[in-house]
Write a protein that binds this DNA or RNA. Structure first.
Lengths: 187, 187
DNA sequence: TAACGCATGTAAACCGTTACATGATTGA
DNA sequence: TCAATCATGTAACGGTTTACATGCGTTA
């Protein structure tokens, strides 16, 4: 249900192919909504059948044909309706790393610290990505499109990601200290 | 695949029914791993068939019969193996609220602020839950079980939830200020 | 008396990932 | 020459939610 609105959201900026949509998602919504091509193509097909989008086949030479999708009146209306209604529930979170940590009581202290350290590496890397690659991409798109108002929201969304990873990194650092200093060795 | 390990993790503390497992999850892992009974029962059945757990039927009066599951040697070994291997990838995040915000450029400023304010209410409530209900539950379970080492990890996991919601609340407050002061009205 | 808690389960529907299949062009 | 990029799609599988079905006891 939400992938549909994600796709409508991007198509609302202009006509694109499924392949383009995937790339845009990978560069922006990736960190709060992602999808694989194996899900995107069938979803677009269904949206076409339901009249939310139209499509035009564009032959290309040296490359496979493109199927360019554009949002319809019906699609626009459905998207606007979705935007105007508030999101009234928190999206349930899943985090394998935390689950793993939660159950780690039977492991040795050193092993727990090793796992936390690995997790820290991953989150530092992600934080760096937000601060550099993602930040640059957002600025690039803003200049390209000239969409100042939208651009502000894109940049603020990126800032959430940055704040989240900053918190995660700090948490892992602090937690490692606590485990190191306060946890007893296994008996 | 991960629900299996979640269930093994709880069964590792002692034999329980599917219904018990659901309640424990709702009170602890809920915020980083959750499941419905409609998924838990079939998963336990499969784990039984695969030899990871055993079960005993316990008749009760005035209440339906219980099916109490216990972890087996094979289950223990599989769980320990899972614990010892590091989690080498970040779990992809989904957050409908952020997705919605990301695409809100065509809404009026007031509407965006309204949505953010609603989200803020939800996150403040969740933060409060972490600080009170969840904190009390964790302390209760630690006293009940006397598991000091495990208890430390349960409490640290709760603290992640608290830190996360604190960051979220601060982000929403700051973001509302930015929108209020810096965003142009729709032209 | 209506709702909630206890307790189990199945079935349908839906969402999401991975693998398979095709095939030319471009860059390392 | 190998990998990546462009471009589309299907199929199999797996994970997740929701609805349905049952039924007694307790509490509001």
């Amino acid at each position: 249900m939400s992938l549909k609105f994600t796709l409508l959201g991007f198509l609302n900026y202009g006509p694109q192919t499924g392949y383009d949509l995937k790339k845009h998602m990978d560069n922006s919504t990736q960190f709060f909504w992602h999808a694989h091509l194996g899900q995107i193509y069938p979803t677009l097909k269904k949206m076409l059948a339901d009249g939310f989008v139209q499509s035009v086949d564009v032959p290309q030479d040296g490359k496979p044909d493109k199927k360019v999708y554009a949002i319809t009146e019906k699609g626009s209306a459905a998207f606007l309706k979705w935007l105007e209604d508030p999101i009234i529930q928190l999206t349930p979170t899943k985090d394998l790393g935390l689950l793993h940590f939660f159950f780690s009581g039977i492991l040795e202290k050193e092993k727990i610290l090793e796992h936390l350290s690995f997790s820290l590496t991953l989150h530092r890397k992600r934080l760096f990505e937000y601060q550099h690659e993602t930040a640059a991409y957002v600025q690039g798109i803003i200049k390209e499109t000239g969409l100042e108002r939208e651009g502000m929201l894109w940049e603020l969304s990126r800032q959430f990601g940055e704040a989240y990873e900053r918190t995660y990194v700090k948490y892992l650092e602090d937690t490692m200290e606590v485990i190191r200093n306060k946890m007893k060795e296994r008996s």
